[in-house]
């Protein structure tokens, strides 16, 4: 069986989780380094945790048959990384939400964009996390030979 056909539904769910996390990560990095927050200091956790999650998920997807004993734990850790990332990221951007909420007539349009990007990133991370939850519960990522 070739590699693609070997993957089970849950393997694709796992890959989907990784891709969703990657999209969320990219959107967040764009929001944190361009536009209203250009020049901002980026919190290391918002880089390390999602990358760790993506790498763990990617490795499991690629060689799950060789990781029988540890793949479940790896996917668990990946899911937790994404869950924590969402919290850290919301905390890091809370001031832009505060500007929009407390003084809704004062903030520049660029801040609106940042708020939207942060929300979009969180949505993708949430999708990723749901995928990891499912993937944790169904760890047969490849089809039986």
């Amino acid at each position: 069986m070739n590699f693609i056909k070997k993957q089970s539904v849950w393997g694709w769910v796992l890959l989907g989780s990784a891709i969703s996390a990657l999209i969320g990560f990219i959107i967040y990095m764009v929001s944190d380094t361009t536009g209203y927050l250009a020049g901002n200091h980026v919190n290391a956790a918002t880089i390390i945790l999602p990358i760790a999650a993506i790498l763990l998920a990617g490795v499991v997807f690629a060689i799950s048959e060789k990781l029988e004993k540890v793949k479940g734990v790896m996917v668990l850790i990946a899911g937790l990384c994404v869950a924590i990332t969402m919290g850290v990221q919301v905390y890091c951007h809370h001031s832009v939400f505060a500007d929009a909420w407390f003084i809704p007539v004062n903030y520049p349009e660029a801040e609106d964009v940042t708020v939207a990007q942060t929300i979009a990133s969180v949505v993708f991370y949430a999708i990723s996390m749901i995928g990891f939850i499912v993937a944790c519960m169904k760890d047969n990522y490849t089809k039986e030979a």
Partner: peptide, 19 residues
């Protein structure tokens, strides 16, 4: 596996409530 999935959900709940 069920416990692992629930742990991810629990981890999110902790992260969300702490945040």
């Amino acid at each position: 596996k069920l416990w692992r999935g629930l742990m991810v959900l629990g981890g999110f709940a902790i992260a969300a409530s702490v945040t």
